[in-house]
Write a protein that binds this DNA or RNA. Structure first.
Lengths: 177, 177
DNA sequence: TAATATCGCTCACTGAGTTAGCAATCAGTT
DNA sequence: AACTGATTGCTAACTCAGTGAGCGATATTA
């Protein structure tokens, strides 16, 4: 009975416990901007992947591949999937022409996955414009301002990392600005 | 032949086109911090979902539900999935005891999904600590500093949004700080 | 009242992930 | 050199969250 929210009557912005939500969030413009930024950030990869006709996993793999070839075991580790899944990712990327398998020069167990020109274009074509835009934005701020921003962002990062891993409340190290 | 990267010989940090990557990125500490932040941000939801034994989709649904009940058509729209998938999400959330179906008071076609106490605890328990940590961080900065941060973050958000949607290069509106 | 649209559901299917187990290879120890 | 154990990448069988098509029920509009 008391199981269900009593916010039934206020569809848009109910008053119940959701207030606690809003209380800790969206108070200052900077916090609101932070929220929007993180939201926008987590929409980039899915969107780019969809436009490229790739899985998010495949896109992450390509992003890594432009920095150099990777073996499948390592790939599985950084994607946090099974090696079987990594094999599948390689198959699909090869099918798209975005990557190629190559024997490891010294270790004959290993097979390295290399990005192709097509794969590199897919990744850089979508992401370089974003990087450029961010670099231009960054350049519009003074060194002192950038320092403030960096401290803020680093603190926020620490908070998010703590949320992502289990929250040990007594971890007071790490994110001190 | 010229298809494959010639970075084969430099596993760790090759010199090839990946340099273009690094050039536009990770130059200033603030840009590096921004990158880390976005990275950390996109790890939060998957991590929280896994710890809660939920799909990311189910977690997103719960986050929305704490703000009030939603119908399945609307839910499908905001999740960007089919209504069939939304039905499945509802089934699973009900199975977990995190949500309940209820008839819409006036429209007898509609079925609203309501969060339960259990569902609310699941969401708030994981996310409120993060919100609090961010609010505390925010409070450690002066209003002037927060203003700088807000301008920076808003510009960054605009760049990310532009990257998520198709990049129209001539869209100069929107994100001007 | 009739035509159209919307809502939530079921059904059959797709596809990216899982676990288990395989042969091949490498590395260290006798 | 040979044996042991770990690692690498693959296949096979399966799971499960998504899709598209189509359904009855209800709401909305002409």
């Amino acid at each position: 009975m008391s199981d269900i929210s009593d916010t039934t009557k206020q569809p848009g912005h109910p008053v119940g416990p959701a207030t606690a939500f809003a209380d800790a969030w969206e108070q200052t413009p900077s916090l609101a901007a932070l929220r929007s930024l993180v939201r926008a950030g987590s929409r980039v990869r899915p969107a780019v992947a969809r436009r490229s006709g790739l899985t998010e996993t495949e896109l992450v793999t390509l992003e890594r591949l432009v920095e150099g070839p990777v073996g499948f075991a390592e790939l599985a580790r950084l994607l946090e999937v099974s090696t079987a899944a990594a094999t599948g990712v390689g198959d699909r990327l090869e099918g798209h022409g975005h990557a190629v398998r190559r024997a490891h020069p010294s270790d004959r167990r290993r097979v390295e996955l290399h990005v192709t020109q097509s794969g590199r274009e897919e990744v850089l074509g979508h992401l370089l414009p974003m990087f450029r835009a961010l670099a231009e934005l960054d350049a519009r701020f003074s060194p002192e301002e950038r320092d403030v921003v960096a401290r803020y962002l680093d603190g926020a990062r620490a908070a998010l990392v703590r949320a992502a891993e289990g929250e040990d409340p007594d971890v007071s190290a790490d994110g001190r600005a």
